[in-house]
């Protein structure tokens, strides 16, 4: 799994790429929590995530909870088909704010 973090005017955008599975989810968790810790809205770009498993989903949930606790927001953007299926299976598609594109996400957090 690879990742890329860039800071926009209104949010930190973190893009994950590849498979977020048992092997890589500890890295994903570290990256996500680090972004949430910046006290700015976080957009998680999942467009390039081919596969995400329960441990990856758990990292997302933990990051969302951490953000909410500190009054911060975390939005999932451009969720790939594979990742969306897993979120649906976990019934988390209603828990996360999900936007189709990065632009929509930025509007959401303004």
């Amino acid at each position: 799994m690879k990742h890329e973090i860039r800071d926009e005017k209104d949010a930190t955008i973190v893009a994950l790429e590849g498979d977020v599975d048992l092997q890589s989810s500890p890295d994903a968790r570290k990256v996500l929590l680090e972004c949430v810790g910046r006290k700015r809205p976080v957009l998680v770009d999942l467009s390039a995530v081919g596969y995400i498993d329960s441990s990856g989903v758990a990292s997302l949930v933990e990051s969302l909870q951490t953000a909410k606790r500190s009054g911060n927001t975390l939005v999932l953007v451009a969720v790939s088909e594979g990742a969306m299926r897993v979120l649906q299976l976990a019934r988390l598609d209603k828990v996360f704010t999900i936007c189709d594109t990065v632009e929509d996400g930025l509007k959401q957090v303004q």
Partner: peptide
């Protein structure tokens, strides 16, 4: 229990769901 939103413990649910 899916109403209990917390990290972890989802794997078995996925298996049974699928």
């Amino acid at each position: 229990d899916l109403d209990d939103i917390k990290p972890g413990g989802l794997g078995t649910h996925f298996m049974r769901e699928v």
